[in-house]
């Protein structure tokens, strides 16, 4: 089938798949960012067991393949009497793994903040959480805009895991198998998805650069 035949027949489905991928990516990244921030605060807090737990979390989810995590969620959780929908399983897998990387990027961003600024905050009478809120997080986030942009793209690519479970509507990778089980889309069906992934990634990259230029901290 040619590109035009594919698009005229499955254009609507591609649109839906693109939206599904965007939605998954957006939700997963938002979750990853929130979890990543919480884990990072744990990793630098004065309570040692929390620091250890935070480090442990990052080690686990940074080093586990997404597919393996999805399999665990889909097949192992029911043994614990936890049955999640496929959508929730995919969303969980695609947010837990980026959350570990998110924490790593924030930690790296924090290392650029001088100890002197923290001491200045302490001597103003700020408590731990106020220092995190006013001094540490804003700077760590500004320093990590570019790595976070890459993480957003990586999160999008991880959402391809959705194709491994039955989902309706399916995502940009799932749509390829959907078409190829019904027609002879061949590599062209895949090419259309690939182009849509690429366009999204380039767009994310551009926005990331803009934000980075805007919030970059003068030294």
């Amino acid at each position: 089938m040619s590109v035009f035949e594919l698009l005229s027949q499955y254009g609507g489905k591609y649109m839906l798949a693109l939206l599904t991928t965007w939605k998954l990516t957006f939700l997963a990244f938002l979750l990853a960012l929130s979890i990543g921030i919480i884990i990072t605060i744990m990793r630098i807090c004065p309570i040692k067991p929390l620091r250890i737990a935070g480090d442990f979390y990052v080690q686990i989810f940074r080093n586990i393949p997404g597919a393996a995590l999805l399999i665990v969620l889909v097949y192992a959780l029911p043994y614990l009497n936890l049955v999640w929908s496929y959508y929730v399983c995919v969303l969980t897998a695609t947010s837990l793994i980026p959350s570990a990387f998110c924490s790593e990027y924030l930690m790296a961003g924090m290392n650029t903040i001088g100890a002197g600024q923290i001491e200045a905050a302490r001597s103003l009478g700020m408590t731990f959480f106020k220092i995190i809120k006013n001094v540490v997080l804003p700077q760590a986030l500004r320093f990590s805009v570019l790595p976070m942009t890459n993480l957003l793209v990586a999160t999008m690519l991880t959402t391809a895991l959705a194709s491994q479970v039955p989902m309706n509507p399916t995502d940009l990778t799932g749509i390829v198998s959907y078409i190829n089980t019904r027609a002879v889309g061949g590599v062209t069906a895949f090419l259309i998805s690939a182009i849509l992934y690429c366009i999204t990634a380039v767009f994310i990259g551009q926005v990331g650069n803009l934000i980075d230029r805007k919030v970059r901290i003068l030294r």
């Binding site: 903040i113 002197g116 200045a120 905050a121 001597s123 103003l124 009478g125 006013n134 001094v135 030294r219």
Partner: peptide, 15 residues
């Protein structure tokens, strides 16, 4: 601590 100000050699302003 809030009652005692501190001025550092390296200024330590919030960048």
């Amino acid at each position: 601590r809030a009652q005692v100000g501190m001025v550092f050699q390296a200024f330590n302003l919030f960048a």
